[in-house]
Design a protein around this nucleic acid. Structure first.
Lengths: 208, 208
DNA sequence: CGGTTCCTTGAGGATGATCAACGAGGGTGG
DNA sequence: CCACCCTCGTTGATCATCCTCAAGGAACCG
């Protein structure tokens, strides 16, 4: 059981088509750290690909608590679904650090899709992966006890390949935002997990 | 804020192509009430469309508690993502009542997609709607207090159109399974909502 | 060195889960 | 037609868990 993060589940080959995007009218733009790319309830107008940098998609509730829907990084696209069906964004997207994005307007994006059917297949696969990821993470978020939620998150990070311990480069706050828990809870559970030898904590950093 | 249910968000026009599916080798099959169509962790082998009936997709945790990922009904397809990327199913699917499904094998499905590019666009839109629905429901499930979760669920049912009260035809147990709460909790919250005039309860039935 | 950002701990409280028991209605078979 | 069984709804009491608030420490950076 894993909380699936897009970062790990999508092939990052879209930049192979960089020139093609440019030919179809894509524009490159620099975004500052923490700059908002689009807001929840904005109408979708552009197709975005990350040339360099990283983006987080999230919701914020009335009390300001964030729920992270996903992280995206170099070579990945994001925010396509509302564009495809002419809808409002269900989440906000912001840059985690200074980032370079490629923007393609809705019309140009549809031209590209129409004239390059192989792209439709590419996006079908990208969206499929994302749905499966979301199904898994919903399940994990709702069904599990707290400890399992965190373990699921850690598993998703690691990609379930190696047995050796790897550094988990998320703050406790970020883990809390992904799992819907509070920082203090994450900290306390991590202490338990450390005692149970499930993780190591060295110099405040988590190894799993 | 709404917990989005597939039933409400997808156009149900796939049956317009019934003959085409048959031409590509689709087979019609009757499933009994509660019969399992596929299990979590099965490899995806078929494309399914509901000719008549309804299907629920869910996960069950160690203690047997169910989390419902979505309901599907006549004219809708389900379980495509794992088929498209050659993956295992993240959920189990079962018939809610006796149902007739159209099954198309993986190979035939890909033939159809390849030779009918307009279908790729259709599926891009179906998957897009589903992603947006899942994003919304994750947000609702994780961020809200209990009362809001239930109101979100009710809003999703109603489709947010009319102001008049409509009958919510879900049992309290089903609402619990969708929201990740327990039956007793759902009952108690519903009583509160009734007192606050948010819903009516007539003859044990919920009107919202 | 001062200001962030992140991590940590403790005490107390609210909330939803759990367990147990019961009522009401519908359907079925004797 | 009645007895039985199911499913669904309901209520109360108790408990465990996680949240909240408050406070302070550690690491990092310009």
């Amino acid at each position: 059981m894993m909380i699936a993060i897009n970062t790990k589940t999508e092939t990052s080959t879209l930049l192979d088509y960089y020139d093609l995007f440019i030919n179809y009218g894509a524009v490159q733009k620099l975004y500052k750290k923490n700059e908002i790319i689009f807001n929840e309830d904005d109408w979708a107008g552009f197709f975005y690909i990350i040339v360099e940098g990283s983006v987080r998609m999230f919701n914020r509730n009335e009390e300001g608590k964030e729920f992270i829907q996903g992280y995206f990084t170099t070579g990945q696209s994001f925010g396509e679904p509302p564009l495809l069906i002419n809808e409002k964004y269900p989440t906000t997207a912001a840059c985690i650090k200074d980032s370079v994005l490629l923007k393609l307007s809705r019309d140009h994006f549809f031209h590209l899709l129409k004239e390059n059917p192989n792209f439709q297949m590419i996006f079908l696969k990208i969206l499929s992966k994302r749905i499966i990821g979301k199904a898994k993470s919903s399940k994990d978020i709702i069904n599990q006890n707290t400890k399992q939620k965190i373990i699921s998150f850690l598993n998703a990070q690691k990609g379930s390949k190696t047995k050796e311990r790897v550094l988990i480069s998320y703050t406790r706050q970020e883990i809390a935002n992904f799992t819907g828990l509070r920082v203090e809870t994450v900290i306390r559970i991590c202490s338990k997990l450390k005692n149970e030898k499930v993780i190591d904590i060295i110099d405040h950093k988590i190894y799993f």
